[in-house]
């Protein structure tokens, strides 16, 4: 169940859209912020708000990689494995992240702080290899830089 205030603000967001469907991403992000991830309950709530079927919300939710349909850690690390980053040896970087966090791709650290997922380009090809942590983008990564960033992000949380 979402609080009445959130519900009212989302209803207003949907009402201001020309078609309900275009507000779907905003609604899903708000619900995700509320629950920590987009739960099954949240999908059905989003569907009710948008006048869509749960399936139609699920179609969108599973398409976007920043909508999480499973529980995630406090901060999600999206590490790019697309072509430019691959040329910049992101494989090594991803391996380093896995080893450092002690999780595989899709895994969440034991302390529930980070979830590591690959992503397919975030428009930072000029600064490859790149990743984002909890929404903050970082480029030109090296193992040392990764150590520093994770430390900092852990403290900020």
């Amino acid at each position: 169940m979402i609080p009445e205030t959130l519900k009212t603000s989302l209803q207003a967001r949907v009402a201001s859209a020309i078609t309900a469907r275009e507000a779907a991403v905003d609604v899903m992000k708000e619900l995700q912020a509320h629950y920590g991830w987009l739960t099954d309950e949240a999908v059905e709530e989003a569907a009710a708000l948008l006048g869509l079927s749960p399936l139609q919300v699920e179609e969108l939710a599973t398409f976007y990689e920043m909508i999480y349909r499973r529980p995630v850690g406090k901060k999600v690390i999206h590490v790019c494995d697309s072509i430019s980053c691959w040329c910049a040896d992101c494989d090594k970087l991803i391996q380093y992240l896995k080893d450092k966090l002690g999780v595989g791709l899709g895994g969440t650290t034991a302390d529930g702080m980070f979830t590591l997922v690959p992503c397919c380009c975030m428009g930072m090809c000029g600064d490859s290899p790149a990743m984002s942590v909890g929404g903050t983008p970082y480029g030109r990564l090296t193992p040392e830089l990764v150590d520093e960033i994770l430390e900092m992000e852990r403290k900020k949380a």
Partner: peptide, 16 residues
């Protein structure tokens, strides 16, 4: 109640 979910190699045709 039936549609397409996921993306890339995970595209799945089914129900919620």
């Amino acid at each position: 109640d039936f549609g397409v979910m996921g993306s890339a190699g995970r595209v799945y045709f089914g129900r919620f």
